[in-house]
């Protein structure tokens, strides 16, 4: 009785990860939920990238820039703006900083008017998802 030949563990892990996030994306009903799924997928993809720290630093810079743009539009009080800025420039590992920046961006978008908020959530969900896909495929996982 021959044993079954298996795929490499790296491929199985990547497939399981993609299936998990695709399943969550399918279940997400609101734009905020879709953003949340894309955020988690991006953090996961960065964590499993060939150079996690370097990738996280690049993506963090980009996300922080977008969060500052949203912050400019919001015209928040000085305390709220300082808190957001603290989240964007907090210390920690690169992955923690990226997760904090994504969380901060989500919180800032939530303060926008409803229509604008949903539009931005959809916009970032789509592009963060694309970014996550690009990062997870750059090594040729599939």
């Amino acid at each position: 009785m021959a044993t079954t030949r298996r795929e490499p563990q790296r491929v199985r892990r990547a497939r399981r990860r993609a299936a998990y996030h695709a399943d969550r994306a399918r279940k997400a009903t609101t734009p905020a939920q879709r953003y949340r799924v894309a955020e988690d997928a991006l953090v996961s993809a960065v964590a499993h990238a060939p150079q996690p720290a370097g990738t996280a630093r690049t993506v963090h810079g980009e996300v922080a820039e977008h969060a500052r743009k949203v912050l400019e539009r919001l015209e928040l009080g000085s305390a709220s703006a300082a808190l957001a800025e603290h989240h964007l420039s907090r210390s920690g590992t690169e992955r923690q900083r990226l997760a904090a920046a994504l969380m901060c961006l989500r919180g800032l978008i939530a303060r926008l008017p409803d229509t604008e908020r949903d539009r931005l959530y959809e916009h970032y969900a789509r592009h963060l998802d694309e970014e996550a896909h690009r990062i997870s495929t750059q090594r040729g996982d599939w």
Partner: peptide
């Protein structure tokens, strides 16, 4: 939605995995 377009193993493919 490229993440959902992951190539699934085809029916006729080997039974790896």
């Amino acid at each position: 939605h490229a993440r959902e377009a992951v190539p699934q193993p085809t029916e006729s493919a080997d039974t790896a995995g």
